[in-house]
Simulated scan of single mutants.
Amino acid sequence: MPAPRSRPSCTRWRSATSSRASPAWSAAPTSPSPRPDPVPPCRRPVALWALLVLLSVLLAAAFEWMRLAAALLLGPMLAGIVVAAGLAPVAVPRPLFWLAQGVIGAMMGRVITLPILSAMLRDWPLFLLSIGAVIAAGMALGWLLARWRVLPGSSAVWGFFPGAALAMALMAEAFGEDIRLVAFMQYLRVALVTLAASAVAQLWGEGTAATTATDWLGPVDGAALAGTLAVIVAGVGLGWRLRSPSAPLLVPMVAAAALGDAGVLTITLPPWLLAGSYAVVGWGIGLRFTRTTVRHVLRALPRITVAIVVLIGICGGMAALLAAVSELDPLTAYLAMCPGGADAVAIIAASSHVDMPFVVAMQTGRFLVLVFTGPLLARLVARHALPAGRGAG
């Protein structure tokens, strides 16, 4: 009689998804050494993925109803946290995660247009000073959080970079940081900044317009979609060959911006493709959480929230100064200096009586500066924040 098969263990999945961040968390002297998470018994993968998809749809729909920024990413990310920390860990295949990054990169490249770049070049001293001031404020607060050991290493710095939240989280992981912590900080900042910007727009402007329903099955130019997908796949493949950690995101972004501005290709990304890519990236982040990570995140939440509110206040003061020394109205200056997220700020600006091109140019310019200088700045700040003899995390 053959011996009964042993039940498969989840230990290898737990170690693969949680090993990167555990040393950094346990290095914090203010927190006790975390006890290892109990390894739950494996469930059927099909049932786990079905539950993950269902929970993602429900949470994303709830966030959309609440008009929360990035709802289609936050829903799957929170669902991934619930499944990984509460039931059993599963993993998103790495090639699929790279392709989803490529779609996000193409979406970012689509908004980098020649009019925005020309506006930045025309008023480059103003843009340079304003962008530098907001980045410096975020770096200073990230330095304090790293210095006080609220978060490990340069994760605090990446978390306070006021650029595109998803891009900063993906690039942080590419350069060795914990994507879970960075994504948590970035999207908490996006939520608070969006609330503050909406309130200011209601007070000073006409408020925000009602959101329009998404046409999920609308007509799509098949040739343009095929060309866009080819650019994404080729860009991700080239990035993999270049062995550059952030290439799966940046190569499609640069290619989409160049081809779109040259009129060679109309970058076409239907809503269902974007939603699927958001879900894959959200799962890729959320499924890496463990119960230990969730406990530490909740413990650090009050101090991180205070730091974000301080950043919003500093940027509000800079906006008042910008409005005083330029011909901009106060609302335009405030939206331009908002520390992210660029997409939510752009939606608010589009529904208010402001200088829309200036706001979009300022937000895009800050994102581009951080894309190319973020890794260097994060390492520099973390090196000076940590005591001698300690690593950057």
Rank of each mutant, 00 (worst) to 15 (best):
S9T: 11
T11F: 12
W13R: 15
W13K: 14
T17R: 14
T17S: 13
S19C: 01
A27C: 04
P36V: 05
R44T: 14
L51G: 15
V53L: 15
A60I: 03
A61P: 00
A69I: 02
A70D: 13
A70M: 14
L74H: 10
G80H: 05
P93S: 05
A100F: 01
G105V: 03
A106E: 02
M108L: 15
M108K: 03
L114F: 13
R122Q: 13
W124N: 02
P125V: 01
A136W: 10
W143C: 10
L144H: 07
L145Y: 09
R147I: 08
S154D: 15
P162C: 09
P162G: 09
P162H: 12
A172F: 11
D178Q: 11
V193N: 10
A197Y: 01
A201K: 11
W204F: 13
W204T: 06
A213T: 14
P219I: 06
G239E: 01
R241L: 15
P248I: 01
M253N: 03
G260I: 02
L265I: 11
L265D: 04
L269H: 04
P270I: 02
L273A: 00
V280N: 05
V280Q: 03
V280W: 05
G282E: 00
R288D: 00
V294A: 11
C315V: 07
G317V: 07
A319Q: 11
L321W: 15
L322K: 13
A323C: 08
A324D: 14
V325H: 12
V325I: 15
L328W: 11
T332I: 09
M337F: 12
A349Y: 07
V354P: 12
M356D: 06
T373C: 14
A378G: 08
